[in-house]
Simulated assay, not measured.
Amino acid sequence: MDKQNSRFRWVVFFSVLFTYLLMSSQRTAPGLITEQVMKDFDVTATTIGLLTSMQFFVYTSLQIPMGILADRFGPNFFLIIGAIVTGVGTIIYSLGTHEFVLFFARILTGIGDATIWVNLVLILGQWFKVKEFVRLIGFAGMTGSLGFLLATVPFSAWIDLLGWRAAFFSAGIALCLTGILLYIVLVKKPRQLFHNESVPVKDEIQPQNVRMLLKRIVSNRQAWALFFCHFGVVGVYVGFISSWAVPMG
């Protein structure tokens, strides 16, 4: 039995997507408590904007390095560590007593968040056949959007019930537990199920020159189309709901 024909691949799929759901929700969840943070820490709207953007600066700057590292060392380790780092950052955010602590927490969250998409794609590529992969990657992208929706009315209700500190603390604990789940699903269990499986030489990924890859991407029109789509549409949308799109009532 190999990975791409085993039923266990669906356990991997849903575990990874559940992680993506939680991690993507924490990209925009701080927007729900903008008013509370401004009041509790006596900060201005400028500080809130910088605090929100900090995670995305870190996330963006780590995408290329993360891709290189994942190709070299494999995606499992980075996704597991990323979930735990995001959880730790969220916990620190919930316990913060100074705005500098909040900045540090969001930097950690950005580092952890930077691991999710690249490694998710690589993991699905390892566990699913090409035809399945093409369909499932769409579901994976949709899961990220569901994470943004989770960080609206549902998480707002959770904040109303527990208070913002307890709500974020519980989210951080959930992410840390998800990291443990990923270790079991991606590392421990596969060692037991597929310990005799070997990777054919023809399927091994040969390392390529990073400079040449970047040159190909920069000269590709489709890459630029995707860039401007995310920069202009997704960037504005996520930036808005991360700071000011707060449920009222």
Rank of each mutant, 00 (worst) to 15 (best):
I92M: 09
L146T: 11
K188H: 15
T143D: 03
L32Y: 07
A166R: 07
Y183E: 05
I173P: 00
W224V: 04
N196D: 14
F169C: 05
A45K: 15
M248Y: 06
F78Q: 09
V43Q: 08
V238D: 06
I241C: 10
V234E: 14
S15V: 07
I205V: 15
G82W: 05
L226W: 05
T28D: 09
G67L: 09
V246G: 01
N5C: 02
G67F: 07
Q126W: 01
G232A: 10
V101R: 00
V236Q: 15
A171F: 10
A167E: 08
I241Y: 05
F41R: 04
L32N: 07
R221I: 02
S6I: 07
W127E: 03
S94V: 04
L226I: 09
R221M: 01
N119H: 04
L175K: 03
F73I: 11
Y183N: 04
S61W: 09
Q222D: 09
M212Y: 00
V37Q: 02
Q206T: 08
V130S: 04
T90E: 06
M66S: 13
V43R: 06
F169T: 04
D40R: 04
E35Q: 12
A167K: 12
F155M: 14
F194K: 09
L122N: 08
G249K: 06
T90D: 03
I84M: 14
G74I: 01
W10Y: 15
L102S: 03
S94F: 09
I84S: 05
L181C: 14
V233F: 14
F41V: 03
L122S: 10
A29F: 13
R9D: 03
I123R: 10
I33T: 12
M212D: 10
A157V: 12
T52F: 06
L108A: 02
R7V: 01
D203G: 01
M54D: 02
G147F: 09
L146E: 05
K215R: 13
R216N: 10
T46A: 15
S15D: 05
V118R: 01
